[in-house]
Design a protein around this nucleic acid. Structure first.
Length: 425
RNA sequence: GGAGAAGUGGCAGAGUGGUCGAAUGCACCGGUCUUGAAAACCGGCGUACUGAGAGGUACCGGGGGUUCGAAUCCCUCCUUCUCCGCCA
């Protein structure tokens, strides 16, 4: 959620910068928020004045009662009856205005950073870096879903039987490779100074709101209605919500946390080649990194997180590129996002494996996560997060790119985690 | 799941209808004293909105209600603790 005072003081700038997202609707939402805010504050002042009168009168009645002057007390009661009635009506109007304002504010996405390129589709994303050698594959190289079957690593059909499409069953060396990768990612995060967290995999509505999944993206999450809980779409949600309603000391920042979790996504509306094999799933595994920091250090830390992800991809010996997402591709809560894609040699396409974002104060304003600065005043923190990494597409690229006539070769960096250096039949 | 008890500021803990945003202690910050430290003493010490300021308003687990007035009474939900049951 954008901060109201920023919205007030930089209205035109906000409108202008939101244009990068390619949705003309935001201008009117911003203007509506400004107007509602003004009405709300006027109503607030009016209501406060009335309540002040009421409080004063109540105290006087109290004193009269104490001195035993019942008659005078009753007279005073009668006198403020009218004020009481109108204050109640006014309170109701104030509540309505607050709700409407809140409703509008939650529909306005974060303001894109100056570096974010304008544009509406993924074609407008900027490639800021490409690294690694794209392997030259023979013509009979196979996509990962065929390899997974051939080497008995993943059984997609079995998953359909047990749960449904998008819930694969990993088995044997497939399961071991997955687990090894998780441990490798966690070990890398630990080396970079992140504290490991195992969070709840279901969250309540407040948490969903705090990180921006609710109320807008309700349909993306699995909802357990019986208990009103949501299956997490990413560990970002529970981990960032650790800091909901928290005031940190300046010297406690930055906070660096990481965590492994399964991720559940309904992915309503996806179809075609995008969902083949491991490309898009309802349940997948991921290691997430999260930082909570002072505003002035967040862009430095964003670079640090980007380097962290690059380091991992380098060790996995996967060719990758880094994209700076355009306004139209930027997620709702993000100010700037860098996507990492690895090249999947047999599918001959780039697959997104990580997304690193700075949310600035957009999430912290919802979370009410602040820190106490130099002059004892509180200020909102910046929040950042990134995948490091999402498992399925890493797995897909690894087995496709490393397939040979005699099996699938495991990159050296993870051999200590797998306990084997090759997958064969 | 059943029965009972309880939820107050960073922590501990008073307060059961009326100058209570809340005693007191600890912690913390500033000062006096001291060569320095400790002790002692003095002062400060929740969050948010609003106002140029003085100040005003809201918040005592969440929500609702009674009342001129609620931390205090009522309803409801949540959480914690104790006992019983069940269980990885």
């Amino acid at each position: 959620m954008l901060q109201l005072n920023f919205l007030r003081e930089h209205t035109q700038e906000v409108i202008h910068r939101l244009e990068k997202r390619g949705n003309s609707n935001y201008k009117s939402l911003v203007e509506e928020a400004i107007e509602l805010d003004k009405q709300k504050r006027d109503k607030q002042a009016e209501t406060d004045g009335l309540l002040s009168e009421l409080n004063k009168a109540s105290k006087e009645i109290g004193m009269l009662m104490k001195s035993g002057d019942r008659k005078a007390a009753d007279a005073a009661k009668a006198k403020i009856a009218e004020i009481k009635t109108s204050s109640q009506a006014m309170k109701q109007e104030l509540t309505d205005l607050e709700l409407r304002l809140h409703g509008v504010l939650t529909q306005i996405p974060n303001v894109p950073h100056a570096l974010v390129p304008p544009g509406s589709t993924e074609d407008d994303n900027q490639v800021v870096e490409t690294a690694g050698e794209i392997p030259v594959m023979s013509n009979d190289s196979k996509p990962h879903w065929e390899l997974a079957d051939e080497y008995n690593l993943i059984d997609f059909q079995l998953g359909v039987k047990i749960a449904g499409a998008g819930f694969p069953v990993y088995r044997g060396k497939g399961a071991k490779l997955q687990r090894a990768l998780i441990n490798f990612f966690l070990a890398e995060a630990e080396k970079s100074g992140y504290e490991e967290i195992i969070p709840p995999f279901l969250v309540n509505e407040d948490s969903g709101f705090g990180t921006g999944q609710l109320p807008d993206k309700e349909g993306q999450m699995y909802h357990v209605t019986e208990d009103d809980l949501y299956l997490i779409p990413t560990a970002e949600v529970p981990i960032t919500n650790i800091y909901r309603d928290v005031i940190l000391k300046a010297d406690e920042l930055p906070q660096k946390l990481c965590g492994y979790s399964p991720c559940f996504r309904r992915e309503a509306g996806s179809y075609g080649k995008d969902v083949r094999g491991l490309n898009r799933l309802h349940q997948f595994e991921k290691v997430e990194i999260v930082q909570i920091c002072k505003p002035e250090e967040s862009y430095g830390l964003l670079d640090e997180m980007i380097s962290h992800v690059k380091g991992i991809l380098g060790k996995l010996e996967l060719p990758y590129r880094v994209l700076r997402l355009c306004g139209g591709d930027l997620s709702f809560a993000s100010a700037i996002t860098y996507d990492f894609e690895v090249y999947s040699a047999a599918q001959k396409r780039w697959l997104e494996v990580s997304s690193v974002s700075n949310f600035e104060t957009y999430q912290s304003n919802r979370l009410k996560c602040r820190f106490r600065g130099e002059e004892k005043k509180t200020a909102l923190v910046h929040t950042l997060n990134g995948s490091a990494m999402a498992l399925p597409r890493i797995m897909a690229a690894l087995i496709e790119n490393n397939q040979t006539e005699n099996g699938i070769v495991i990159p050296e960096a993870i051999q200590t985690f797998t306990g084997f250096d090759k997958i064969d039949k």
